Computed example of a mutant assay.
Amino acid sequence: MIPCIDVRDGVATDPSGIPGLADPLDVVGIAVGYAHDGADQLFLDVVDPWTAVGYLPDLLREVHKTGLELLVSVQHGVLPSPAEYKELLSAGADALSVSTSMVEEPDRVADAVRLLGGRRFVGVVNCSGDRQRGWRVLVHGGATRTTTDALTVARRFGELRLRGLLANNVDREGTGIGYDLDLTRATARVSQLPVIASGGAGSAEQLADALRNGDAAHVLVNKVVHSGRETIASLGEGLRRHLHGEEG
């Protein structure tokens, strides 16, 4: 289970409802709580453009102290110059996400992987649609819809042998209705990468369903824990029950 924190201007984009936080916008405080509850990875979705993330290396150094493995997205998966992304990796990011650039500048992505290796990058497929109609990729945080097939992009990520692939159906974001398991299964099949299910998490049962029936290796959670409605600990306990039985 990988919690996600959306970040703008160095703070969470929305106040967290987690009890006991000194500052509900404090990224480090939220991350400390997630680590304390048993998370071992964290996805930081930084929506600022690369020209406005001068604060990010210092923030990453602080979050890195929690012991969490950090997956970091900047500007909706745009990959900048090597000097810029190397700075974030040196500051504590374990991997950077690639999304928009894979559609618009695939050669830049291939060059980055050749330079640093696939383990330093996570592919992200943000898309809309369903199994019957097909899934079409969205870039720039959903602001731009494309005609690009999501499974084609997933296959390209697999060919680059990245550390993993996050499959997100934006139609389900924030709904709590569960992940698009058709999407997670299809992307896992064509990419042969460990898939992170994303978009729609609302209960431990849905998380277990993605891991058990959706061919997902990990599940991303955002609003369900950021709001305080569930905790990483409560979801983890429920997840164990659903995967291993009541006695587990």
Rank of each mutant, 00 (worst) to 15 (best):
M1Q: 05
P3R: 09
I5A: 06
V7I: 15
R8G: 12
D9V: 00
V11L: 04
V11H: 12
V11R: 14
V11S: 05
S16K: 01
P19E: 12
G20S: 07
L21E: 03
L21G: 07
D23R: 06
D23N: 13
D26M: 11
D26Y: 13
V32A: 01
D37W: 12
D37V: 05
D40V: 11
Q41F: 11
L42S: 02
L42N: 02
L42W: 03
F43C: 09
F43I: 12
L44A: 03
D45K: 01
D45F: 05
V47D: 07
V53I: 15
Y55M: 03
Y55G: 11
L56W: 07
L60T: 03
V63N: 01
T66Q: 10
E69K: 14
L70H: 05
L71K: 06
S73N: 15
S73L: 02
V74R: 09
P80N: 07
P82Q: 13
P82H: 11
A83C: 01
A83G: 08
A83T: 13
Y85D: 08
Y85N: 12
K86E: 15
L89Y: 03
L89V: 08
D94K: 10
A95H: 07
V98K: 02
V103I: 14
E104N: 02
E104V: 13
E105G: 00
D107Y: 05
A110I: 01
A112F: 12
G117E: 10
G117V: 14
V125C: 05
G129V: 04
G129P: 09
D130F: 14
R131N: 13
G141I: 09
G142T: 03
A143L: 13
A143F: 11
T147D: 14
T148H: 09
A150M: 11
L151E: 01
T152Y: 11
V153F: 00
F157H: 07
E159R: 15
L160I: 04
L166E: 08
L166G: 00
A167M: 08
N169W: 11
N169Y: 09
R172F: 06
E173V: 14
G174D: 00
I177K: 15
G178N: 07
L183Q: 09
L183E: 10
A186I: 05
T187Y: 02
T187L: 14
T187A: 12
R189E: 13
R189A: 12
R189S: 09
S191E: 06
V195P: 04
S198G: 01
G199P: 06
G200K: 03
S203W: 01
S203V: 11
A210S: 07
L211A: 04
D215L: 08
A217C: 08
V219I: 10
V219E: 04
V221S: 06
K223L: 07
K223H: 11
H226W: 03
G228Q: 08
E230C: 07
I232Q: 04
I232F: 03
A233C: 05
L235C: 04
L239H: 09
G245T: 05
G245K: 01
E247D: 12
G248R: 06
